[in-house]
């Protein structure tokens, strides 16, 4: 059983809401619940009443280029799911909120400030026996004018990552130890994960993303426990310039959330090109 969010010592506790808080705001028109899952069937099997689905591939990515949606598409998405600039968006999902924090990160690129994550995600909500429904809500369309996507604050591209690595600044590889070591790029007989080389970006520390989670209920660990991992064990400091990455930037968005919002690190950027880009680049350094 986790301590209440406000007692866990987070730098920005307001970014998390509890399942109890969500249960009390199910009918609140100022709150929009957004479910984002890895499994495309899960939302349709039952979701929180009033929750809309944001699919990580269909809704958040450009359909042609390897990039996220642009301002116009983001505005369309927000209108479709009934989010106004002052709506508080609460993300939750499967896999310990892995995809929920990914959606949160993409929304942050557009500066939607009223964004929260439901601590524990689907797992905790279901464990508590709370209501799920198959009814798909229809929220009134909104007017939403978004700012242009700002890739400069929390996103980083390969040239900057190379300079970052060569300068010896902190990188966190949140993949599994087997992926980090290059031992595993793909399972035998299965398609490879899109990279020609295995290993990690030189100097990267390996902290699998799920270490930040209490596995019994999917909640985030306390600030003290997170500091033990990221600060004392890995030697990171809140004023470090940190780049996080994984395979395509989804798992690392979870670690980005932990470092920047729960621990209050000032500059954390997610390299969404991640290993599917780095492991295919010609003549960049790789460590194993």
């Amino acid at each position: 059983m986790s301590d209440p969010i406000e007692e866990r010592g987070y730098a920005h506790p307001e970014v998390l809401v509890s399942t109890e808080w969500v249960a009390e705001h199910l009918a609140d028109p100022a709150v929009r619940l957004v479910e984002s899952n890895e499994d495309p069937l899960l939302y349709a099997t039952g979701h929180l009443p009033g929750a809309v689905e944001v699919d990580w591939t269909r809704d958040l990515n450009d359909p042609l280029r390897r990039d996220y949606l642009d301002r116009e598409a983001f505005e369309d998405l927000m209108r479709r799911i009934g989010v106004a600039p002052k709506t508080t968006v609460v993300f939750y999902g499967d896999k310990n909120n892995w995809w929920a924090t990914y959606a949160f990160w993409v929304f942050s690129l557009f500066g939607h400030e009223r964004a929260r994550v439901m601590d524990g995600g689907r797992l905790k909500w279901k464990q508590e026996g709370r209501e799920l429904t198959r009814d798909v809500p229809r929220h009134p369309a909104t007017e939403y004018r978004a700012a242009e996507r700002d890739d400069s604050r929390i996103r980083v591209f390969r040239d900057d990552v190379l300079a970052h690595a060569l300068a010896g600044r902190p990188l966190v590889d949140v993949r599994s130890p087997e992926e980090y070591s290059g031992e595993r790029m793909h399972m035998p007989d299965y398609p490879n994960e899109g990279a020609l080389r295995g290993g990690h970006i030189p100097g990267a520390r390996n902290v699998p993303w799920a270490r930040a989670i209490a596995p019994e209920d999917g909640t985030f660990k306390s600030a003290g426990d997170l500091e033990a991992i990221y600060r004392r064990e890995q030697g990171l400091a809140p004023d470090d310039d940190v780049v996080v990455y994984c395979r395509i930037g989804e798992r690392s968005s979870h670690t980005w959330f932990v470092l920047s919002h729960l621990l209050g690190f000032e500059k954390v950027r997610n390299y969404d090109g991640s290993w599917t880009e780095w492991g295919n680049l010609v003549n960049v350094p790789i460590e194993r």
């Binding site: 499994d39 591939t57 793909h186 399972m187 299965y190 398609p191 395979r247 395509i248």
Partner: peptide
């Protein structure tokens, strides 16, 4: 063939999900 996973679920599955489902077929 494991390729049926894409025919059933579409090509927008995450890598982890598609690998797990393809592994079932395999």
């Amino acid at each position: 063939s494991p390729d049926i996973v894409y025919r059933i679920f579409g090509s927008e599955l995450s890598m982890g999900k598609s690998m797990g489902l393809m592994a079932m077929v395999s």
